[in-house]
């Protein structure tokens, strides 16, 4: 028994040294604000500012597909830790801000590390930790029985333009967007916050990532994004 344990321990140490040697985390983390933070935190406020600046912001949802299909941050890609490959990571490489998340950012942190190890830069975690923190802030969520991705993205754009719409109401338990029924919630948002005629979804601002991503993994996220960009093109055509 003891011999087995010693043998297993030695093999694990060797495996660890091999895996650690291949880790590019430190290289990918160069230029981070705090050298002690491997994956720096970013506030919701900063994320909204980036969106408003038209930066390429990508949310990556580390949860399972079943969880993702229930609700997610609008426009988020679904990529679990075990799906991370060099190829999938390279697709995210040129983004200005990549926010990995899950419920409380346990899996989100691990996904962020895996992406960093694959050479992805600008990976961040949300300061409020996960989709729960995002929801608590009063920021929009796309869900199966609530807002669609397009609607939630439009609301997010509104929030980025005027943070008071979402952030200043955070913490209020009866914030109408989340306390009303799905149907009324949608009507409320469309009537109260969004003018459908001026709807120009722009986030993520280009469809390069989602289109190339489709060839990698035909996830629900990719389908939603494709639908979103189809809608975007139609909107552009109408506008012109």
């Amino acid at each position: 028994m003891i011999q087995s344990m010693i043998f297993a321990f030695i093999v694990l140490l060797v495996a660890h040294s091999l895996l650690a040697g291949d880790d590019q985390t430190a290289k990918a983390g160069e230029g981070r604000p705090d050298p002690l933070e491997l994956i720096p935190l970013v506030t919701s406020d900063n994320i909204l500012e980036k969106i408003q600046e038209d930066a390429k912001v990508i949310f990556v949802d580390a949860r399972e597909t079943a969880e993702y299909s229930e609700d997610h941050i609008p426009g988020a890609l679904n990529l679990t830790l075990r799906q991370v490959t060099e190829t999938s990571a390279q697709r995210l490489g040129d983004a200005d801000l990549i926010v990995t998340f899950c419920l409380k950012d346990f899996r989100g942190y691990e996904l962020g590390r895996a992406l960093q190890s694959s050479g992805v830069r600008n990976v961040r975690l949300m300061k409020d930790h996960g989709i729960n923190g995002w929801r608590k802030q009063g920021l929009p969520i796309a869900s199966r029985d609530g807002l669609t991705d397009v609607e939630a993205l439009a609301l997010l754009r509104k929030c980025a333009a005027d943070k008071g719409i979402c952030l200043e109401k955070s913490g209020a338990a009866d914030f109408p967007v989340y306390s009303l029924s799905a149907r009324r919630r949608r009507d409320h948002i469309l009537d109260g916050f969004i003018d459908p005629s001026s709807f120009v979804p722009h986030f993520p601002r280009d469809d390069t990532l989602s289109r190339s991503y489709l060839t990698l993994d035909d996830t629900l996220s990719s389908k939603l994004l494709l639908t979103l960009f189809e809608g975007c093109r139609k909107s552009d055509l109408k506008g012109s």
Binding site: M1, S4, M5, F7, A8, F9, V11, L12, A15, H16, L19, A20, D23, T25, L38, L81, R82, E110, R113, A114, S117
Partner: peptide, 23 residues
């Protein structure tokens, strides 16, 4: 041998998903 594998497999799976623990 069996016990060695039993001790080994979870550790390897853990290292595979976690990478460098020193970080």
């Amino acid at each position: 041998l069996l016990l060695a594998v039993v001790f080994l497999l979870p550790g390897l799976a853990f290292l595979q998903t976690t990478g460098d623990i020193g970080i």
